[in-house]
Design a protein around this nucleic acid. Structure first.
Lengths: 151, 151
DNA sequence: AGCAGATGCTTGAGTAGTCAAGGATTGGTT
DNA sequence: AACCAATCCTTGACTACTCAAGCATCTGCT
């Protein structure tokens, strides 16, 4: 088996393990999944804490229906609200509520901690993590805006 | 946002993109998903092309029920059969059929080609891929047995 | 003005997994 | 010999997505 195929299969395994770990900690401490957190985080990075739902889908690599379904529980528990556009009756915005913004701060702190733990053990040097991230970007993660790994 | 969290989120994105690509090509050419291929591949690596279902689950990072559900369509189309253990009535084996083995050969060739394409573009040097794979191993991918990336 | 096509969003149906519960079989302990 | 606990596997109910279809609204062309 080639290194390339080996790396591909390992990537799949690594992701499921990583998601499981985030889901366990985020779910236990804050009652949200990694997918929930990712949505909240992306909204938090947008100006005004709001985005058109279709743009959110694009930014997260989901379909429009994935966003509809994913936001529903967050709206239900009051972290996100739906807002309309005065000019265009088709579009609906997803916006962080004040509660949502506050919760996001806490959740982000937990997520940072989990990520730090994951990459704490060798062979992860600080440079490794940066390079690893850069390499992953090539694999389809356009990633999040405004982030450039430390040189 | 830390590099560690950034890398984690990119990993998730990269995996979904990679899976989509494999699924599209493998599905189009052979009618199987990446998950199907992974199951067949693991069986193919086992002595006699057969494993206890519970061991297959462990090897793939799935639950026992995930294996039951995942193997069902492969049994239905005749790539895998169920075998019993003469000594222990509880266990059931999953075994590649001759057809399954032949199909696996073809599918593997396609998978190798896809992986090669994915890692063909810069910044992927041969060493990068090997190191990348080694780093991924730390993230929970125990990976597949018997593979050591080229030095 | 009015229509055609594009855009934004939701919904129904399907897929791939999880967990929890349950049935069958085995093996160890008395 | 009889039971109790552990092991293997499947099934029902759920989650989180996908795609395809559908509805409402907007925009550009005539």
């Amino acid at each position: 088996m080639s290194d390339a195929l080996d790396a591909s299969l390992r990537l799949v395994r690594a992701q499921t393990a990583l998601v499981k770990r985030f889901d366990a900690s985020l779910g236990g401490l804050h009652g949200v999944s990694l997918a929930d957190f990712t949505m909240l985080l992306r909204l938090g990075q947008a100006p005004g804490g709001r985005m058109r739902r279709v743009d959110l889908a694009e930014a997260l690599g989901l379909t429009a229906s994935g966003v509809t379904r994913g936001l529903a529980p967050l709206e239900r528990i009051g972290l996100v609200t739906r807002e309309t556009d005065a000019r265009d009756g088709r579009v609906a915005y997803a916006a962080l509520t004040d509660t949502g913004r506050a919760r996001l701060t806490d959740i982000l702190a937990t997520a940072e901690q989990i990520a730090a733990e994951i990459f704490a053990a060798p062979p992860w040097s600080k440079e490794d993590v940066g390079q690893f991230s850069a390499l992953l970007t090539r694999l389809g993660g356009t990633g999040l805006p405004g982030h450039t790994p430390a040189p």
